[in-house]
């Protein structure tokens, strides 16, 4: 289990009274949460409860109906397009489907975000950066393969390498172990933990895989009916007597 030494650290993400609906379907209603520096925060909830919507609001892929989403003190909805791009360099996003570009090799997939944020001084050795990211996820040998040639677990690792290549301060994981067998899921969970420790990243992890939650979570937020229903460590929540919280741990 992942200990939580982050209580006194500053918040890197602050969400206040977040509301988001799709027509008559209100998925987030006055949702509040803070992510502390260096913390792994797991958002636990049923399918369709609005977990993915939450992190898409954080990264600016969706606009909230109302409320405040601050990343490093900047209000996401107020950012210009250029500022939003700058913010996104600091925030990595691991998609549930991996979202690797099918038409590109692994190398090109990893080079793509690098070339987008062309910083000449840092671009002197693209190959080294690509190989470092791949080595971090243990898949340096796949550099010239295409995503179609990789297994599900390998694709997840490559997607994680692509997320890491810009050295983000925050990583948003959207169901990182979904679709993987328990062993590979466990490996990915430990990899996420290693990344947190190695790069001191802060993460929001969307998951309902309790093995992943147990390994990675410093703190857990239970999202029910669009609000932060309960919060605490894995130990605290697993002993909860509230039936709606308990059902996740049974």
């Amino acid at each position: 289990m992942n200990e939580n030494p982050t209580n006194t650290r500053p918040s890197v993400i602050q969400i206040k009274d977040l509301k988001k609906s799709f027509g008559e379907n209100y998925v987030l209603r006055n949702f509040n949460v803070d992510l502390k520096e260096g913390e792994n925060l797991v958002v636990l909830g049923k399918s369709g409860s609005g977990k993915s919507v939450l992190i898409k609001c954080i990264i600016g892929l969706m606009l909230p109906d109302s409320g405040s989403v601050q990343v490093f003190g900047d209000e996401v909805t107020d950012l210009s397009h250029d500022d939003l791009d700058s913010m996104r360099i600091k925030v990595g996003f691991l998609f549930q489907s991996n979202a690797l570009y099918d038409s590109m090799t692994v190398r090109e997939n990893l080079e793509f975000p690098l070339r987008r944020h062309w910083i000449k001084s840092e671009m002197t050795n693209v190959n080294d950066m690509v190989m470092e990211a791949l080595t971090n996820v243990g898949l340096a040998e796949t550099v010239d393969m295409t995503p179609a040639e990789l297994s599900g677990g390998m694709r997840k690792r490559i997607a994680l390498a692509r997320t890491l290549i810009l050295k983000p301060k925050i990583i948003l994981y959207d169901e990182p172990t979904t679709g993987l067998d328990p062993i590979t899921g466990k490996e990915i969970s430990h990899l996420m933990l290693d990344i947190q420790k190695k790069y001191n990243t802060s993460s929001i992890i969307i998951s309902h895989d309790m093995n992943c939650v147990k390994i990675t979570a410093n703190r857990i937020v239970v999202l029910i009916d669009g609000v932060c229903y309960a919060t605490g460590t894995y130990d605290e929540l697993s002993k909860s007597t509230d039936i709606r919280v308990k059902q996740f741990f049974d």
Binding site: I59, Q96, L100, F112
Partner: peptide, 21 residues
């Protein structure tokens, strides 16, 4: 078909998140 498949597999979102329009 190409853009449709990129859309449903979130590749277009991934592009946006990586700072590409």
């Amino acid at each position: 078909a190409e853009l449709g498949s990129m859309k449903v597999t979130e590749q277009i979102d991934a592009m946006e998140v990586s700072g590409t329009n």
